[in-house]
Amino acid sequence: MNTPLTIGQLQSHFNGMEQRRRLYTAVFLGASLIVFFGGFSIAEDLNSGGFWQGLAKFFDFPSQIIQDTFAADDWLITVLEYSPAMLETINMAMVGTLFGAVMAMILAFCSSRNLGILPGLVPVARRLMDITRAFPELILALFLIYLLGATPIPAIIAVMLHTAGALGKLFSEVNENIDRKPLEGLQATGASWLQRMRFGVLPQVLPNYCSYALLRFEINIRASAILGFVGAGGIGQEFRTAISWGAGDKISALFLLLFLTIVVIDQISSRIRRNLVGGAYQMA
């Protein structure tokens, strides 16, 4: 057993720790300041326009948009004219999410250790999910646009693959956290593997699956809109055209549509999700 410390030793030990802690804090703050100011000045140098000159022009573009909007007489008609493009983007996200979620489900069942399919499949499925998740949608979409032409389908496939990876990971976490008792009960009745999954696992995981998929759907609407910017159709493409023309009234119309869609879908899906899982997975 160690000899007990005297009060003095304890004191000096405490002071030492305190000082080290202060040093860490100072180093951390110093490093943060260096990152901030250093980063800012590098970024400022690399940027084609400066920060301080830009600040003066900051409101030029927004104010031009607002002026154009009030100057246009048929602005509401513009909004209506763009709704098919918005619908296309929503459809892109929907189809991508649907297929992506189905793929994610298959991957999740293959990658959950506790469901006992083929143990050899687990690492394969996990790596597959890691790869699809890490691959940026934009790059995939650009490749597919080169192959398939500038249509919404490249965007759908890109969204789908990314969704499969992202949702697959979440789904497999849900799978691994299930209560095993229903499974054991079913096994005791002599249920087959499929029956065990259908009656023991699915009822437990389906609400969470749906909730995650809805959340992903919201994310995918944004992603599909963005992919439109590189030529995949939908509202993103219209956006790009409107911005390059500098047509303020069209920009604001598209903006309103996108914003409204996101808000409405956000509201609907958060209500459904609350019903599904009792509000437990609001911030996933």
């Binding site: 970024a43 940027n47 084609s48 830009g54 944004r222 910017f229 914003f259």
Partner: peptide
């Protein structure tokens, strides 16, 4: 939050030009 990063960056490109500052 509601306005996407892409749209913010398009607004900022008008004011600050191309470059990492705009993106950040």
């Amino acid at each position: 939050r509601g306005i996407d990063q892409i749209i913010w960056s398009l607004i900022f490109i008008r004011a600050f030009g191309l470059g990492p500052l705009t993106g950040s």
